[in-house]
């Protein structure tokens, strides 16, 4: 062992010069973490008492119970509304995002300035959170599920536009060239050369987003844009904890069911190998 140690001293040093940058970065990150926890109030003793209360709250949430039959019915209706919001927002976003995605794709739009503008506006739309869109639409069409559907639509146009344009750019060039060589116009090249090829990919992305939008739709109710979120926020704020856990359970079951259905549909469409967002 000592002979090996003598021959390769660099492998036996605990903190060689090679590891120095790693150590500096790690300790800087740790220092920032501790500083952040200090600033955000982790060390005021609130953490421990809060943990105690959290355990208490978790105990009070058991067993899940809607309280009364009327409550359960109202939650069920709100959940259907939530799914409706997600479906409507996702589908209308997909329809509106297709032309924008074409404008932002390199192999469709030759003008660099159009492409640049399309991409920047998509980026801006995506950077604004769905809850902020919900608040803006509430100002336009009033409180209610309609504002929620519009918020999901707006925020998804940003995501779909980007994903669609990437899928379109990844499409094979040969069908388009074939159509061009047969005398087809640019529009025909898009319609018969690109769209048939990318459609399954786009549809699978839409299905994938439908599931994640159901999750988003459960929270936009917190700001008043319809769906189950309103009931959930109310139940939490009035400390009806058994109802809270009942609603959360309902959401989990619904999301799981939609996940199952949408992934079955996706696999049927594109085969088992392709994952989400690829």
């Amino acid at each position: 062992m000592d002979a090996v140690r003598d021959r390769y001293p660099e492998h036996f040093r605990r903190f060689g010069p090679q590891r120095l940058p790693m150590i500096v970065v790690a300790s800087a990150m740790l220092a920032l973490l501790l500083y952040g926890m200090e600033v955000l109030g982790f060390f005021d003793g609130k953490l421990l008492s809060g943990m105690g209360r959290l355990v208490e709250i978790a105990g009070l949430m058991m067993p899940p119970d809607p309280g009364s039959w009327a409550h359960a019915r109202a939650y069920g209706m709100a959940l259907i509304e939530t799914v409706a919001i997600a479906l409507l927002g996702t589908l209308s976003a997909a329809i509106l995002a297709l032309p924008v995605g074409l404008l932002a794709a390199r192999n469709v739009t030759a003008q660099r300035i159009v492409r640049f503008l399309a991409r920047r506006s998509l980026d801006t739309i995506r950077s604004v959170d769905i809850l902020i869109w919900a608040l803006i639409w509430i100002n336009v069409v009033g409180l209610g599920p309609f504002a929620g559907a519009l918020a999901i639509m707006t925020s998804d146009i940003g995501s779909f536009g980007k994903l669609f344009s990437e899928a379109i750019e990844a499409a094979d060039r040969k069908p388009v060239e074939g159509i061009a060589s047969a005398g087809g116009s640019h529009f025909m090249g898009i319609r018969f050369g690109i769209l048939p090829e990318v459609f399954p990919v786009l549809a699978s992305q839409v299905l994938y987003y439908f599931e994640s939008n159901t999750r988003s739709a459960t929270i936009i109710g917190i700001v008043g844009a319809g769906g189950i979120g309103l009931h959930l926020a109310e139940a939490i704020r009035t400390l009806e904890l058994q109802q809270t856990s009942f609603i959360i359970l309902m959401i989990l079951v619904t999301v799981a069911a939609i996940d199952l259905v949408s992934s079955q549909l996706r696999f049927a469409m594109i085969g088992r190998r392709a994952g989400p967002g690829k």
Binding site: G50, R215, L232, A256
Partner: peptide, 27 residues
């Protein structure tokens, strides 16, 4: 799966009750 499926804001609402208003609940 449970941590991922329950939306962040729902956790935040619950934590606000337990830890009081303020950034700690958000973190």
């Amino acid at each position: 799966e449970l941590c991922r499926t329950v939306p962040e804001l729902v956790f935040a609402l619950l934590f606000v009750i337990a830890f009081g208003l303020g950034p700690m609940a958000g973190v």
